[in-house]
Design a protein around this nucleic acid. Structure first.
Lengths: 235, 235
DNA sequence: GAGTGGTCTAGACCACATG
DNA sequence: ATGTGGTCTAGACCACTCA
C-alpha cells in the first residue's frame, strides 16, 4: 500500500482545488460514486475524505442533492486550529521584532507547566508582532532548552517558531490548551504596543503539546483589542 | 431501518457507560470486532460510533493496542462547544440578576447582525451572572421579537435562555460565531461587577444561528478576568 | 504470534431532493 | 424517475503493540 492513504490523497486534491478557486463556494463537488470511479476506489474510501472536509466545514453535504463547497463563514478564521501567528492573522502582513532570544534558568511557572527539573534551562523568546507595520501583540515563549539548543541562538525559519521546530528539529505540535483573559498593560508592554499603560489587552496563556503528550511550549501573549480572536462554536 | 442508526445507538451506549463511570478514564473499551459481534453489526458500523467518540476526545485510539477512555484533560472545559453560561462554568454555582427584560426597537448593530427590517422590534435581556454569589459577567442578549414574543415578559426556564428557546419555542441553536477581545470597564458595568472603572474585562461578541442559518441571538458579554475562557486547539 | 486499530472493497437498500 | 448522500455488510490485508 502507498505510504499515504488514498482518502488523504483525495482529501488533499479536493482541498487544493477549493483553495485554488477551481471549486468556488457554492459549487457542487462531483458525486461520491463519480469520485470513486475517478480515483478507482470504493465509495467508502471517498466518504472518508469527504467526512474530513465536512468536519472542517470546508464542504457541506445535502442528502439527495450533493456535496457543496461551504460558504466562507464571513468571519471565523483563527482559533479552533493551532497555527502560527501569521496564519492566524490571515492574509495580513506580519513582521516580528525579536526582543530577547536565549537560554535562562526556567522560572517556577515554566518548570511546572513544561515538566522540567529544578535548575533545568529553558529557551526564552520574546517577540513583538507587527501587523502591517503597527504593533499588535507581544509573545513570550518558553521551551525546554534540551529539546532544541540552537533555538536559543539561530534565526527562526520564516520567522515562525512552529516551522522552525518542525523543519529543524522534527518536533510537531499536535494540540494546545489556552486560557484567554484580559489584563491591564504594564509599562513595558504598553510601550512596545504603543498603548497607554493600564489599557486593556487580550491575555492568552497557551501550553502546546507534541503528539505523545509532552508539553513543548508555554507561551503568554498580550494582544491589542483591535485584533480580536475569532472563533466558531458548535452545538 | 430503525429510525435511529445503529452507530448512534452504539455511540450513545458507550458514552453513557463512560459518563456513568462504568468505563473509567484509561480503561480499554471492547475491541472493534468484539463490539461488532455484540451488537450484531459489521466492524465498519462500530467504527462510525468510535470515530465520533474520538472526534469529541471521549476516547483515544492506539493502533495495535486498543481504544481507551480519554483522560479528562485537566483544564479545558468551556468554549469549543456552544452551551449555556452555567454549563460553561462547569459545576460552579451560578445565579442571575435580570437587569432588563423587554422589547425595544432594535438599534442598528442588532438590526444588521440579526437581519431585521428597519423599526422591527427586538427582545433585550440584560443579565448579571454571579458565580458562587460574586458577580462574574454581564450579558446582553438581543433576539428578534417576533421569534418568541413572550420572551420579553416571562421568566426563563431554569434561568437559561437557550433552554427557554428550545423548550418553549422549539428553537435550537446550532452554532455561533464569537469574537473575543478586551475592553476597559465603563462605570455601569464596573459597578455591577464590583471592579474599578477602567479595569480590563474579557469582551465577547457572539452571534448564534439556528440549523438553517438564521441568526437568532446577538450577545455581548463582559467578564471579569478571574473567569478566563478555556479552549483546546487542534492542529 | 495473537490481537488491535487503519485502510479498503464491491456491493446493497434507504431517505431525500430535484427536475 | 433519477440521482444524491446516509447507512450498512462481510469480508480483506496491513502496520502496529504487547506479551
Amino acid at each position: 500500500m502507498s505510504p499515504v492513504p488514498m482518502y488523504e490523497v483525495i482529501y488533499g486534491d479536493l482541498l487544493s482545488q477549493i483553495k485554488a478557486g477551481a471549486l468556488a463556494p457554492g459549487d457542487r463537488l462531483p458525486s461520491e460514486p463519480t469520485l470513486a470511479s475517478q480515483y478507482g476506489v470504493s465509495r467508502m474510501t471517498v466518504r472518508q475524505a469527504l467526512d474530513q472536509l465536512e468536519a472542517e466545514h470546508v464542504v457541506v453535504r445535502r442528502r439527495g442533492s450533493g456535496t457543496y463547497v461551504a460558504q466562507p463563514s464571513s468571519t471565523y478564521r483563527r482559533m479552533n486550529r493551532l497555527g502560527s501567528f501569521g496564519e492566524e492573522m490571515g492574509v495580513s502582513e506580519v513582521s516580528t521584532e525579536m526582543k530577547f532570544q536565549g537560554a535562562v534558568v526556567a522560572p517556577d511557572e515554566v518548570r511546572t507547566r513544561l515538566g522540567l527539573k529544578p535548575r533545568q534551562k529553558a529557551t526564552r523568546l520574546l517577540r513583538v508582532r507587527l501587523v502591517s507595520g503597527s504593533p499588535a501583540a507581544v509573545q513570550e515563549s518558553w521551551l525546554p532548552y534540551s529539546l532544541a539548543p540552537q533555538l536559543a541562538r539561530e534565526e527562526l525559519v520564516g520567522g515562525s517558531l512552529y516551522r522552525t521546530l518542525f523543519e529543524r528539529w522534527g518536533v510537531k505540535l499536535k494540540w494546545a490548551e489556552q486560557t484567554i483573559s484580559a489584563v491591564a498593560a504594564d509599562a513595558e508592554r504598553a510601550g512596545w504596543l504603543g498603548v497607554a499603560q493600564g489599557s486593556p489587552l487580550i491575555w492568552i496563556t497557551r501550553v502546546a503539546f507534541a503528539d505523545d503528550g509532552t508539553p513543548i511550549e508555554l507561551a503568554h501573549s498580550w494582544t491589542r483589542p483591535e485584533f480580536p480572536l475569532l472563533a466558531r462554536l458548535e452545538t
